[in-house]
């Protein structure tokens, strides 16, 4: 049975079809879930894709957090379901309080659109399980607010608990400690700025993102059978 993945779509989300195609191409079954839905039942994993949810008004993710679907996403996460926020989806998860910290504007004041090297720091998360720590993946970033920040206490906790799951090899945006992705304490909610779905087919120049998405699909099945 393939992993059923719900791809949450807000007004202004624009990477949902890329994610659906990538997941389906890896043998999963992805479906779009409108942000007005108050249920996410029937899915083994959820992905919040990139874009500009609610126009990024106020702050990226600030309004999306109040969309009806987010309460259901919160319950799904609390029950241990795998949830991954990519780029704007990461911003939504921090605003919703499902992940610590915040994404501020890039150091250097530039919007960044480039393929960068990301190092997997731990295999203890739903997005990196089964991937050897130290593995370097080449994956595109595409953001203005991707500069991860948090207070010193939170950073110490993230590092101590091995919750920094991905780091930039060459920090492109000023993120504290080179952080590209983090997970929650239970390790089932993950946020990352790079776009694995854009590196999941040879046509896109890299298939390194598929490594992460395959890990998620495997985690989804494990969690569904738990």
């Amino acid at each position: 049975m393939p992993s059923r993945v719900g791809v949450v779509m807000f007004p202004g989300t624009n990477c949902e079809h890329d994610v659906v195609q990538a997941v389906n191409g890896l043998g999963g079954t992805a479906e779009l879930v409108w942000h007005g839905n108050s249920s996410v039942s029937g899915y083994d994993a959820l992905i919040l894709p990139g874009g500009f949810a609610h126009g990024d008004y106020l702050r990226p993710g600030a309004i999306a957090r109040f969309s009806p679907v987010m309460e259901a996403v919160g319950r799904f996460a609390a029950e241990g379901g795998p949830v991954v926020g990519i780029c704007n989806g990461f911003q939504v998860l921090t605003e919703a309080g499902l992940l610590p910290g915040a994404l501020q504007k890039n150091r250097g004041l530039r919007f960044l659109c480039a393929t960068v090297d990301i190092r997997v720091e731990t295999d203890r998360s739903v997005l990196t399980s089964g991937i050897a720590p130290g593995t370097v993946l080449s994956i595109p970033i595409n953001h203005f607010e991707g500069n991860y920040t948090c207070d010193a206490e939170t950073l110490a906790r993230l590092r101590g608990d091995e919750r920094v799951i991905l780091r930039y090899v060459d920090n492109p945006n000023g993120s504290i400690d080179g952080i590209a992705g983090v997970c929650n304490e239970e390790r089932n909610v993950v946020g990352l700025m790079p776009h694995p779905e854009r590196a999941s087919d040879a046509l896109t120049g890299s298939v390194d993102g598929a490594v992460l998405l395959r890990s998620l699909l495997a985690s989804a099945l494990t969690s569904a059978n738990a």
Partner: peptide
């Protein structure tokens, strides 16, 4: 709760 994100 809404207008400011206390982290930043």
């Amino acid at each position: 709760r809404v207008l400011a994100n206390p982290v930043i």
